[in-house]
Design a protein around this nucleic acid. Sequence first.
DNA 1: CTGAAAGCGCTTACAG
DNA 2: CTGAAAGCGCTTACAG
Lengths: 353, 353
Amino acid sequence: MTASTARITQRMIADIAGVSQSTVSLVLNGKADETRRIPAATRDRVLEVIRETTYVANPVARSLAGATNGLIGVFTYEPAFPNRSSDFYTPLLTGIESAAEGVGADLLVFTSTPVVDGHRRLFHESNRLRLADGCILLGREMDPDELERLLDTAYPFVAIGRRDAAGGRVPYVGVDYVSATRSLADMAVGLGHTRFGLLRLPLTAESSRDRREGLVAGLTGHGDLAEAEMTTGTTVTDAWDAIRPSRPTVLFIEDPVDAQLLHEHLSASGIRVPEDLSIVVLGEHNRPRERAVDHTRLSAPRTELGARAVAALTARLEALHTTDTDSAADADPVQELLPCTIVAGATLAAPPG
Amino acid sequence: MTASTARITQRMIADIAGVSQSTVSLVLNGKADETRRIPAATRDRVLEVIRETTYVANPVARSLAGATNGLIGVFTYEPAFPNRSSDFYTPLLTGIESAAEGVGADLLVFTSTPVVDGHRRLFHESNRLRLADGCILLGREMDPDELERLLDTAYPFVAIGRRDAAGGRVPYVGVDYVSATRSLADMAVGLGHTRFGLLRLPLTAESSRDRREGLVAGLTGHGDLAEAEMTTGTTVTDAWDAIRPSRPTVLFIEDPVDAQLLHEHLSASGIRVPEDLSIVVLGEHNRPRERAVDHTRLSAPRTELGARAVAALTARLEALHTTDTDSAADADPVQELLPCTIVAGATLAAPPG
DNA sequence: CTGAAAGCGCTTACAG
DNA sequence: CTGAAAGCGCTTACAG
């Protein structure tokens, strides 16, 4: 670097203002007023030089010296943008971004770990989580071992979505899918349905298990439930063919994209919705597509979810910095479930006949 | 922190492996093989301990010690998500994200500076740009003074979008709007139009000036151009009322949202498109809306734009670290324009009568 | 071949 | 009231 481009340091500010580097630091961190009484004249002189030189403290150095650096990490197990999950992540990120702005934090999005087999590994040879004060974890599924290990490191984090792992010690902000699917099940039962179908994702994710749990709770004793699971290579047509023999009058579909596709397939097959078959979707597109069907569905508060996660993480970070760390580490993890909205839609009706 | 949660350091690795801390660092940075010949046995022993302990170097310390920190900053003048600009930013961010993943960098999204009057200020009392190795700047308009000042600090950055500021010294990756709008103008002229309308945004942004320039170049000598500018408080109806007296047969509209709104207004007024009036849009929605019209338009390669910006910034950073810095600082800035696609669409036809 | 040491730019006790 | 100093965890000349 040429001299003209060299960065300004506290040492330079100190020299100009005729004080010591520590005094500059003290003034900068506002502690000039509390712990010690630096005369207003000294303080103002330092502040004046800081303003003239447009000095800003090197956040890397601050961080190494033990101060927090105002960075909120965002780790997405699945890539956040290109694919079907993008639809889900965008409102989440919107909520995270505006909440981060609200607390004056920057966002550190961990993209350095390549996506392997459709998901990122949290622990990696160059794990960089510590660059941020704390981290928000996003993903349909999270490796329980990794969560356990993360908990052991005492690194502050909050998962988005309810998590079973690590004996219930994982801090999270999630969605109350159990109650919402229970309500949808009750609606179907109330309309007189007795043969139910469920087209769902693998039960490896809590969000899928929760949806199924609420559904089963509402349906039990009111009829039969035929299930099909979407795994790699399964098409919605395959899944429908598996369920169809049980002749359901209402079909619950977990994934909105699957619902869209199957709906088109049904229309093409001459099956009318909801006259011949009702459809209830256990999720929602981010944006209405062209020719989108107004499905009866649940709607998760995704933007709020992102904002709440930032709030929970921020609260945790503050606790760590005000309390003595041992007791703070033992504090109960934040575990919060936000309610869904039920969208009546146009695809749930009484069974035929 | 309790002892169990203390982080592992190179010092600890060194003690376990029975070597010095510097040796650990050397092994870790691969320089064990180049500059100096650390015996394979020593190296393997160190690597073994590193693996057992799952040690990872503290990136903050690495950064302070002079190594790059693998952080690519993303500064958006306008908030990236909530509003109309979201539509434009999303594909850009997609490109940036996947390119960052490709080069093993994390993304630092600057959200800490609050948005004031619709845009963020780059220089702020707690400017944190230096947290990242370099930065990508996004925004319709960028303050020329800020760009000049940023250039003076020798901080590596690349703007997205062509920039006039600072005597042409701003590095950017932009879109060749001039050529694209010129093509669209030629198409309209070729169809026999002679009365043209332009509904555009303020010329404070290069992207607006470029669009206008291409248009004017293609239209000059072929008829009259009536212009209306969308400013705060102007509605598309206002703008249309201003242009209408000149009785244009083809209307160029810069903003896709405006195009959508005006199209609806025209339909409601009984004006048929393109029979009575052709419409050409100088931009494109990210995703098709419901009831979207297939406008004749240009389509900018936004995902590619993001990826190219990351590549340009990365190249610049590498140059800074391999060459002596003085000569690198003098290197010509990257200034690259990507071509648009012309979408024929269904709203440009020969003039009536 | 490898270690001791300086230094990156801060924060924060600790002495005056 | 303020400065000198230690220390955060690294990288990288510089000596052996």
